[in-house]
């Protein structure tokens, strides 16, 4: 199955509180435009919020911006929504992120260093495909959901 990019939109979000909501509104509009079901749109919104919060809170990006690119993929009709959340921060390694506190959420506080891990766990749980690329020049979360 071919996956050409039918449409692409990129937002450059300043690192100020609640910018994740702006990204989620754009995600909703684009997902609605390809007639994704409301429940699946809600899942996309939540995943976008978590990816943006991780970037806004943890990236320590020198340019103080987060870039969110939305791509509608398919040929000839829309089949998939791909979202890339990119920052130019310090990156992270998987060893820095605990997927789950010992004993589950009640076995340890999930504030502080656990937060990024929870965000990633939610993203994995809500989206069909997730890839994370992180290094010294920043982090990109690539996540997709079929229509």
């Amino acid at each position: 199955m071919s996956e050409g990019v039918l449409r692409e939109v990129t937002l450059a979000l300043p690192m100020v509180p609640e910018m994740e909501i702006e990204a989620s509104k754009t995600a909703t509009a684009i997902a609605e435009s390809i007639r994704m079901s409301p429940d699946r749109i809600d899942e996309v919104r939540m995943a976008v919020v978590e990816a943006c919060i991780n970037a806004l809170e943890h990236s320590r990006s020198s340019d103080q911006e987060v870039f969110v690119t939305f791509q509608v993929l398919g040929d000839p009709d829309p089949e998939k929504l791909r979202i890339m959340v990119k920052d130019h921060g310090i990156g992270f390694s998987s060893s820095e992120v605990k997927e789950e506190p010992k004993g589950g959420p009640m076995g340890g506080k999930i504030k502080g260093p656990q937060k990024r891990g929870w965000g990633l766990k939610i993203i994995h749980g809500l989206m069909d495909e997730v890839e994370i690329h992180s290094g010294a020049d920043g982090t990109t979360v690539v996540m997709s959901k079929m229509r």
């Binding site: 009640m106 937060k115 929870w118």
Partner: peptide, 20 residues
């Protein structure tokens, strides 16, 4: 409420811990 985030949920977990 139509949207929550993990930080908000972490605070709800603290309330659950307190209730327990």
């Amino acid at each position: 409420t139509k949207i929550v985030n993990s930080i908000g949920i972490s605070i709800l977990i603290e309330i659950i811990e307190k209730m327990l």
